[in-house]
């Protein structure tokens, strides 16, 4: 997973062609979600994370178990309120985090939405934003774990400054979106949903888009 960090331009759009709206992998995870939390009672989680709001259309909650010695995530359970893409993306994330004996906390922190959509065989363009909440809920659960074990110095409040308080979208997320080619507010919203729950942050988002556009693509 670590090496993927380098290749910024992963093609995350639907690679299935135009025949079906969702890929076979998406459909499999949507109709047969893996690792979702069937019953919370009796489940002892080492960390819990939650992002989103029902008004915005997506809420995700993640429970993790961590092996303290290896710092590997041995189990991940989740619940999602959202559309097919959101459910499939959370399900796929749970598989990616726990396969091969589980990711370490550091590996898991580096998991990006693009990595998840890639494994899903892509998502339709306008559905990519639905996949961006799962990894945030995961990082929030990791922070919760670190807090519980007293390693507060290792807590990372996302990768940057939170811009959208409702969806917990940071300046880093906007940077990523611009890097992926979103050059207008509408396009950045397509990817991140920023401002849909907290419209007051939109002026700041527009400023950031201008800033990153100049940084990476030069002045207009």
């Amino acid at each position: 997973m670590n090496n993927k960090k380098e290749d910024k331009k992963v093609d995350v759009t639907n690679r299935q062609g135009s025949g079906s709206f969702y890929s076979t992998v998406v459909k499999d995870h949507f109709f047969h979600p893996k690792n979702f939390m069937e019953d919370e009672t009796g489940y002892i989680a080492d960390g819990i994370g939650m992002v989103g709001s029902p008004a915005c259309g997506d809420v995700m909650r993640v429970w993790i178990k961590v092996d303290p010695k290896s710092e590997r995530i041995t189990d991940l359970k989740w619940k999602t309120f959202g559309c097919a893409s959101a459910i499939a993306a959370t399900s796929m994330m749970s598989v990616m985090v726990t396969e091969n004996e589980g990711m370490t906390l550091d590996e898991a922190r580096k998991l990006r939405p693009q990595d998840i959509t890639f494994r899903l065989d892509g998502l339709p363009q306008r559905k990519i934003h639905c996949s961006v909440l799962g990894d945030k809920a995961l990082r929030s659960a990791i922070n919760d774990y670190l807090r519980k074990v007293g390693q507060t110095d290792r807590i990372e409040i996302e990768h940057g400054r939170i811009i959208d308080k409702v969806l917990k979208i940071t300046d880093h997320d906007i940077e990523e979106a611009v890097l992926e080619g979103a050059d207008t507010l509408e396009k950045v919203q397509d990817k991140t949903k920023v401002g849909t729950g907290d419209p007051s942050c939109i002026p700041e988002v527009e400023q950031l888009i201008r800033f990153y556009k100049e940084k990476y693509y030069g002045a207009e």
């Binding site: 979600p33 979702f36 069937e38 939650m50 029902p54 809420v59 995700m60 909650r61 619940k79 999602t80 309120f81 459910i87």
Partner: peptide, 12 residues
Amino acid sequence: RKISPVNLDMEY
């Protein structure tokens, strides 16, 4: 609803 973490009151 089993998959959903949301449980709102009817007033919503």
